[in-house]
Structures are given as C-alpha cells and as structure tokens.
C-alpha cells in the first residue's frame, strides 16, 4: 500500500497554547483511520491544517502528494471534508445546496442519488434552516461526498443522528472503504470507531500517544474495552494519570 496522507512533525501554537507538539501520522490508501482524543487534544487543529484552513508553525502535510497550501485547488477536488460545526446558506433548499456543491467539482456524484442514500429525498425542497439537527448532519455528510473524494475527513460523523441513521451512515463509510476511499474519522463514539476503523490514532495534549488497531489498543493497555483504553491513554497523555507523576 502507498501513503495517501502523510503528516510529519506538525507543530501549531495559538498564543501561549501549544495545540500540536510534533504530530506525525501516515494513512495508507483505502484505510479508515480513527482520530480520537479528549476535547482540546488538537484533533480539529490537525484536521484543519490538513485541509488547508490553517498553516502549521512547523512540519509538513501531504495528501496524495499535494500540499494543502500550495496545491489548494487540486487538493480540494480530491478531498472531502465534513466539518464539526458549520452552517450553510440558511434559506437555500436541500436539493439546491446539493446541486450547488456538486457544481464545485469536475467529477462528482449524482446529488439526488446521494440525498436518497442519506434519507434526505423527502427534504429536497426544505430550506436548510428548517432541517432538524440530524438532517443537517446528514446533509453535511452528503456535501462532503458529492465531489467523489479520494480522501475524506469526517469530524463527529454521527453526532445528533438517531440509531437507525447512525447505522446507515456506518454502512455508507464501509461502502466508501470498498471503493478505495481513504477515511480519517474523528469521533468520540467508541462503538463507531471500533466498528469502522482499521486503525486508531490517539491524540493527547497535542501529541500522538498511541497508534494501533482497536483490538491492539485494548490488548496493549490491558483493559476490557476501547473506551477504557482511550481513558487510560488520554489521562496518561495529559499528564493527569499515575504514569505521569
């Protein structure tokens, strides 16, 4: 396999706070990798630097060999991003937004088919502001996929979704894997990470403190569940656990 996403020695400070302290990460083609960490661990900072929204103070990012800053236009044709928090044009309808975002890409998916797949077919004429939180989330996923990305970043993928919609979105991610799409999934839902991810990267206080399969993390930490492993690793990683003292 070859690397789709390579992050090398990434540093980022905001004022006196170090958000990232030398993060490195490699994701191979077609992998689904989970990025987990407590709030403020640096996950969103890392993803936003990878997506070209911010510049790193030090270090490099390459996605399919492209630099997010230098190769902005080319990268965005192959990268799909679902952001944790963002609104859309408030009075545009679901179908209009899907077609608008489709128009940004040269080789995108059929927006209507995507809305159908995400259970938004009946809401095509509903304006964004009138959607429920879960419907907005599903639309956000649809818009991240409409460009037929080769790499996709999904931040808090299923937050706000009911159990049925969650399962449907999980199936969608599994289909993406089958298509060879590389997925970076940021999540606090350990069942989701366990089900979907080939590998899990744990971030704590701006550093990678573990990088293993879900089963491997549970095994090496010697705890019963992935959630226990996460808690043990992140408490230790922030210097709050007994290992840090």
């Amino acid at each position: 396999m070859s690397a789709t996403l390579e992050i090398r020695d990434l540093y980022k400070r905001y004022g006196r706070t170090s958000a990232l302290k030398g993060v490195s990460l490699t994701i191979e083609v077609g992998e689904v990798v989970g990025l987990i960490g407590r709030n403020g661990a640096g996950k969103t900072t890392m993803v936003e630097i990878a997506a070209g929204l911010h510049r790193a103070d030090r270090g490099t990012v390459r996605i399919l060999g492209l630099d997010p800053q230098r190769d902005r236009a080319a990268l965005r044709q192959v990268l799909g991003v679902q952001l944790q928090e963002s609104q859309l044009h408030s009075s545009l309808r679901v179908g209009e937004l899907a077609r608008l975002f489709r128009s940004f890409y040269r080789n995108g998916r059929d927006p209507d088919a995507l809305l159908e797949r995400l259970g938004l077919h009946d809401q095509r004429r509903t304006v964004f502001d009138h959607l429920s939180g879960g419907q907005q989330q599903r639309l956000s996923i649809a818009l991240a996929l409409v460009g037929r990305p080769r790499v996709i970043v999904l931040d808090e993928l299923t937050t706000g979704l009911d159990p049925e919609a969650r399962r449907e979105v999980w199936t969608l991610v599994e289909d993406l894997r089958q298509e060879g799409v590389t997925v970076l999934l940021i999540s606090h839902a350990m069942d989701e990470v366990e089900r979907l991810c080939d590998r899990v990267v744990v971030l704590a206080a701006g550093r990678v403190v573990a990088d293993d399969t879900p089963a491997g993390l549970v095994r090496t930490t010697g705890v019963p569940t992935l959630e226990d492993a996460f808690l043990q690793l992140t408490v230790a990683g922030t210097g709050l656990g007994p290992e840090a003292s």
Partner: peptide, 30 residues
C-alpha cells in the same frame, strides 16, 4: 464508478460561479 479526477486539476468548473451567484439571488428573494 468513473475515474477519479486528475490531481493537477486547475480548480472549480465555471458552473460553480453561476451556482454561487444563483445562491445569492435566492437568498435575497427568499
């Protein structure tokens, strides 16, 4: 599935411009 786009793609298609303008028009008349 069709082939993925070339990585040296120059940017968004012209339709993106008209789409954005149409979106702004809709925002105003609604």
């Amino acid at each position: 599935m069709s082939a993925p786009p070339a990585v040296n793609d120059p940017g968004p298609p012209a339709a993106a411009w008209s789409g954005l303008v149409l979106a702004e028009v809709r925002m105003v008349y609604r």
